[in-house]
Simulated assay, not measured.
Amino acid sequence: MTTQTLNIKTYKLGPDAPDELSAEDTQRVAEFLHTHLDEYGDALEDIQACLVYAKERGGSVTYAEEDGEILGAVITNRTGMSRFIPENILVYIAVHGKTRGRGLGKQLMEMVLDNMEGSVALHVEAHNPAKKLYERLGFTNKYLEMRLQR
């Protein structure tokens, strides 16, 4: 019987950060998120654009893998603002369906938050079960977000 080991990797991104996240792993993370965000997801091109933004302006990528398979991933971006808008936004987080309910999402969130400086915002649908995790981690609902889509 082989023992599987969960490996969590975090990469700080930005103009002053070392570019340690390979193009292959960047693509793997984007494809994982596109597949596992389910109904809360975006187009692959949008996830890839988020990664480009993080590499150019600042942010991070954290992902967990076991035996070469990604089981969870998080992307954050720096907003370039402070006080009136949080300095960071957690843009994407997803865990593989086979790991849900085992604490991997919480583990990833705690690792990401421990490695960030400044306030953090995230958007979550009211009916998303992950909302309870975010509240347990200290996130509060300060505003009702409204958008005008054009």
Rank of each mutant, 00 (worst) to 15 (best):
E39A: 14
E39C: 14
E39G: 04
E39H: 13
Y40D: 09
L44K: 13
L44T: 01
E45H: 14
D46Y: 14
I47D: 08
A49T: 10
C50Q: 01
C50Y: 02
V52G: 00
Y53A: 00
Y53P: 01
A54P: 01
K55S: 02
E56S: 13
E56H: 13
G59H: 06
T62P: 05
T62M: 02
Y63T: 00
Y63C: 00
A64E: 05
E66Y: 07
E66Q: 14
D67P: 10
G68I: 04
G68R: 05
E69S: 12
E69K: 15
L71T: 08
G72E: 09
A73K: 11
I75T: 06
T76S: 07
T79G: 10
M81N: 12
M81V: 00
S82K: 00
S82E: 05
V91L: 09
V91A: 13
V91Q: 13
V91G: 04
Y92I: 00
I93H: 06
I93T: 08
V95I: 13
H96M: 04
H96V: 05
H96P: 11
K98S: 15
K98C: 07
T99N: 02
R100T: 02
G101T: 03
R102P: 01
G103W: 06
G105I: 09
Q107R: 13
Q107Y: 08
L108H: 11
M109E: 04
E110W: 03
E110R: 13
M111C: 05
V112D: 01
L113R: 01
N115Q: 15
G118H: 05
G118C: 04
S119Q: 15
S119F: 08
S119K: 11
V120E: 11
A121F: 06
A121I: 03
L122M: 07
H123R: 04
A126R: 06
A126T: 08
A126I: 03
H127G: 08
H127E: 15
A130G: 06
K131A: 14
K131S: 11
E135P: 07
E135I: 08
R136H: 14
F139W: 06
T140F: 09
N141H: 14
K142C: 07
K142V: 13
L144K: 15
L144S: 15
